[in-house]
Design a protein around this nucleic acid. Structure first.
Lengths: 183, 183
DNA sequence: CGCAAGAATGTTAGTGACTAACATTACGCC
DNA sequence: GGCGTAATGTTAGTCACTAACATTCTTGCG
């Protein structure tokens, strides 16, 4: 394991510990770095920002591919939900407990919710592009893409916030069903 | 007109001018304050943050009321779109040109897009609450609310970014149609 | 095994958004 | 015109984040 990944992980766990102990906004980057045994500068060489510790998603390509591959007869929203369903099925389910801990912190901070939205922009654009490839007009494409991503994020945050033993996968599938089944 | 509102408006126009001249991120709060003839501190006494100059929306109550009033037979998403449609119809259309200028700036900055999402949280919660009043379960309520708000914001930003003479109202109604007609 | 290149980290200095506490001015009403 | 209070100024500070340059550490290669 390279030194780079090692310090990155040290910083990551130090950050999670501190967020858990005293909350996100109350912990400073300097503290995280100190607990990790490095300088503040080093933190920013591993994470572009403080919130990047908690929000980072590289779903995009999978989802977009699944959408263009979806049944051409399906209307836009249904195509997206089908695509996300497929993409989710083709990916190893992450360690739910860890994801949940992180999402819970995100759910509790307006700033982090904003960061999550900002961070999902790439996914949103990938979905819109995939829809356009299917012949959907530009405006409906961006609207449906924005709605789908927001629905997913909303479901994830709700899943994390609510106590219970529902699986992550069920939460996602349920959210998608709520979206295109509820009109 | 009280002094408070006067300086607030001076700050507001000074900010818009500067954002237009050199872009959002490139203008500092100190510059805005200087052009308005006040101190940096005074700026923050009128706007809670730099992005608050551009994003602030008090739609919530109207929309929520319209949703609970919507036909109980309608499914969740359709109820929301119907509610927004009604709320929009009952409100005087704002000066489109000014709104457009502001939204164009927001569309161009990831940070501002995040701020917009953060700022729409109250509306989102109001919608979710209204849906729950209609008997919709909790998870679908937050999911549909998140999707609807994101769709609206997405449509607004797209409308602002695209050149053309489409009216704001048409853009909103079109977005709603795209949402619940496309599944 | 030792030694250079290159990666990773440290140091210093600075910017910009935002906050707190206290002093000062200006407005608006009687 | 004076007087209370709201509006502004002043100062000092915190925190996220960036840039430029110096230093150490790792690693592959002879």
């Amino acid at each position: 394991m390279s030194k780079r990944t090692r310090t990155r992980e040290t910083l990551f766990t130090a950050a999670l510990e501190l967020f858990d102990e005293r909350g996100y906004e109350a912990t400073t980057v300097a503290e995280i770095a100190r607990r990790a045994g490095v300088t503040e500068m080093t933190f920013f060489r591993h994470f572009p920002s403080k919130d990047a510790v908690l929000v980072d998603d590289p779903y995009d390509p999978l989802i977009a591919d699944a959408i263009v591959a979806a049944d051409p007869a399906l209307p836009a929203l249904a195509a997206v939900t089908a695509g996300v369903r497929d993409a989710w099925a083709s990916v190893p389910p992450p360690a739910a407990a860890a994801v949940r801990e992180r999402l819970r912190i995100v759910a509790g901070s307006p700033a982090l919710r904003g960061a999550l939205a900002r961070n999902s922009r790439a996914t949103e654009q990938a979905i819109a592009e995939a829809l356009r490839c299917r012949g959907v007009a530009s405006r409906p494409a961006v609207v449906v893409a924005a709605a789908a991503v927001a629905a997913l994020n909303g479901a994830l945050l709700d899943w994390a916030a609510v106590e219970g033993d529902e699986s992550l996968g069920d939460a996602i599938l349920g959210a998608l069903a709520a979206l295109d089944g509820a009109s």
